[in-house]
Design a protein around this nucleic acid. Sequence first.
DNA 1: TTACAATTAGACAAAACGGTCTAATTTTAC
DNA 2: GTAAAATTAGACCGTTTTGTCTAATTGTAA
Lengths: 193, 193
Amino acid sequence: MGYKHNIEDVIQRGIELVRTQGYHNVGINQILKASGIPKGSFYNFFPSKEAFIKAALESYGRDYSAWIRGLLQTEDPSPLSRLRSFYRILIDANEADEYAGGCLINTVSNEVGRNNDIIGEAADNGFQKLIQAVAECVELGQQAGEITTNYTALELAEYLHAGIYGSFSRMKVTRSRAYMDRWYQMTFDFITN
Amino acid sequence: MGYKHNIEDVIQRGIELVRTQGYHNVGINQILKASGIPKGSFYNFFPSKEAFIKAALESYGRDYSAWIRGLLQTEDPSPLSRLRSFYRILIDANEADEYAGGCLINTVSNEVGRNNDIIGEAADNGFQKLIQAVAECVELGQQAGEITTNYTALELAEYLHAGIYGSFSRMKVTRSRAYMDRWYQMTFDFITN
DNA sequence: TTACAATTAGACAAAACGGTCTAATTTTAC
DNA sequence: GTAAAATTAGACCGTTTTGTCTAATTGTAA
C-alpha cells in the first residue's frame, strides 16, 4: 500500500510552483499546501529546500530530455524536419502556458545558479541533458546533408539552446511568442544547407 | 550642501547587489548596509522595494544603453566591425566580472518579470532601449552592405539580444566564456554577407 | 530669525521564512 | 504477533523579511 504521501507528487507540485514563480518566491509552506503534505513528511524526504530543488531539477531534467527525445524520434524520415517540429511544439507549449515560466532549469539557474554551487551544478547537468538530446538529432541532420557541417552537432545544439532560451527571457516580459517565432525562422534559415 | 545621503549612490549599490545575487536574495537591510543609509532615509526616497528596483532598472537601462551607444560610435568606419568589437568587449567584461551576474535587467526580468507587472514593464523598457541601440548600428551595417538584409535591423538586433542573453544563462552555471565565444563566432558567421 | 519641509536615525512590528522537535501512526521485517 | 523503522502531523522556534513610526536633525525660504 505504501504511506499516504508520495515524494514524486511533491516534486511535481514544487516544480510547477518554482518554474512559474521562482525559487526564492516560493516558500516551503506553499509547496506543502499545494501537495497536501505536512512539514514533517517533507523534511523526512528532503533535508532542506536546497536538496528539494536539486531533486526537482534532476526529475525535471530526466522527464524533459525524455520528452525531447520522444519528439525527435518520430517516423518523420527527415532529422531537420523533426528538429523544426520539436521547436514549433516547444514554442506552442510556451504559448499555451501563457509564457508563465518556460523551463524550470532556466528559471532556477538564472536565479541562484551562480550563488549556490549545489543548485548550479544540478542546473548545469540538466542543461547538458537537454542539449545532448538535441545534438543527436542535429548530427543526423548533418549526416543527411540537411544541416551545416561548419560546426559540430554539439556546437549547433548549444547555439540552438542559447537562442531559444534567450527568446524565453524576452517572452517572459513581453508575453508574446513573436520573439520565439522570429528566432525559429532566422535560426533555421542560418543553420540549414 | 545637500543632505548626507544620495539617492544615486544607493541605487548603484543596490544594482550591483541585485545584479549579482538576485532580487529576492538581496534584502533591503543589505542595501542599507552597503550604502550606509538608514532605513528611514531609504523609505523616504523609495516607497517600497518594488519602487526601488524599478528606479534601479531605469537607471541601469539609461547607463547601459548609453555605454552601448558609446561603444558603437567609434571612429571605426565599419559598422560591422564596431558591432563585433562591442560584443567582444561585452564578453570580456563578463569574464572580468567572473560571470557573476551578467545584466541586471536580465537577472530581474527572469526572476520576477512575469510575476510583477511593474517590474516586468520596467525590465521590458530597459531591454528595448538596449536592443534599439544595437539596431541602429545593425542598420548602418546593412546600408554598408556588410550585414544581411534578409531581416530588418530590429529583427537582427533582437536576434543578437536573444542569443547573447541565452549565452549568459549558460555562462552563469558553467562559469566559462566558451559559450559566449562560440555564439559570437557563429552568429556573425550567419548574419554577415 | 523663524517657520516649514525634507532628511536622518534606528527602534519597533507583523508576517513569512526555513527548519526542528516530539508524539502518534503506519508499514515492514522477523 | 512483535519489534523496529519509516512516515505522518503540526506545533513550535529563531531568524529574517519588508515596512512603520516617532523624534531629532538639517536644509530652505521668508
